[in-house]
């Protein structure tokens, strides 16, 4: 039985309008709908596919967050995770989050740890590798495919201008990116009922440092508007790109 830990984050829904408050020092969470991080959802989906294809697995999902993340965690159980854990802490900087996950995972004998490429709210892209470093296990990021063969992990990764298939013994950490799974799994009614009954284990936070602090936020400058060029004047477009925008 392979023991798998899937780390999931909760992020603002992709169509959310990003606004800030208190002199642009805080993210304005009013009217924000939260969802499971899209890459984390694909990572979980792919692990479930591997289990369904015949690799016996015991899958634990873990999230670092306050009580408001429990719906997201339940969704992970509803699609098929066996155990659910919430580490009771505010997910601030990546090192802090990775330290919480490491404190939880240490000594539990997870064979495989899987995360999504990045949490799409802060785009840190760091937690998976930091966790692997804290647990002192090897890893691969940017994985576009994973399988388990003979107890080993077989991963495809995208390199600049190419692809590699890598085979690794466990324990191992994989951060999945696009292609890992195509569509996230939708929970079935039975899963939803099951998830309601599954307890979410709440683990207290451990003391850890914040290496990086956000001082303030900025929105990108508004575009000054689109300059339309008539469709039969493509030469004019080329001229504008060359002389005005200076990008040709």
């Amino acid at each position: 039985m392979m023991k798998v830990l899937v780390c999931i984050s909760q992020v603002p829904d992709t169509t959310s309008k990003v606004r800030f408050k208190e002199g642009n020092t805080q993210f304005d969470t009013a009217d924000i709908q939260y969802v499971m991080g899209p890459y984390d959802e694909l990572a979980l989906t792919r692990i479930l596919e591997v289990r369904d294809a015949g690799t016996p697995m015991e899958i634990t999902v873990v999230n670092v967050g306050d009580a408001s993340t429990e719906n997201t965690i339940r969704k992970a159980v509803a699609v098929g995770a066996n155990h659910a854990v919430r580490i009771d802490a505010k997910p601030t900087d990546a090192f802090y989050v990775a330290s919480q996950l490491a404190a939880f995972a240490k000594g539990q004998g997870f064979d495989l740890i899987v995360t999504g490429k990045e949490a799409s709210d802060y785009n840190g892209n760091q937690v998976g590798e930091m966790l692997a470093e804290l647990l002192d296990i090897p890893s691969i990021s940017n994985a576009s495919h994973i399988e388990v063969k003979g107890g080993k992990v077989v991963v495809e990764r995208e390199m600049g201008g190419g692809k590699e298939t890598v085979i690794a013994p466990t324990p191992f950490m994989v951060a999945g990116q696009k292609g890992f799974a195509i569509e996230p799994r939708i929970p079935a009614m039975r899963g939803i009922m099951q998830a309601r009954k599954t307890p979410i284990k709440v683990v207290p936070a451990v003391p850890a440092e914040h290496l990086l602090t956000v001082e303030s936020y900025e929105l990108p400058p508004a575009k000054s508007g689109c300059k339309f060029v008539p469709k039969d004047q493509v030469d004019e477009l080329v001229r504008l790109l060359h002389e005005e925008a200076k990008v040709l």
Binding site: N125, E133, S139, S141, N142, E158, L211
Partner: peptide
């Protein structure tokens, strides 16, 4: 900020206890 940097930098952040700013 590419596939190599994104893999290596977080590990060095832990090893050196160095704050990491990506992107």
């Amino acid at each position: 900020d590419n596939f190599m940097g994104r893999g290596i930098a977080p590990r060095m952040s832990v090893k050196l206890k160095a704050a990491l700013a990506t992107s």
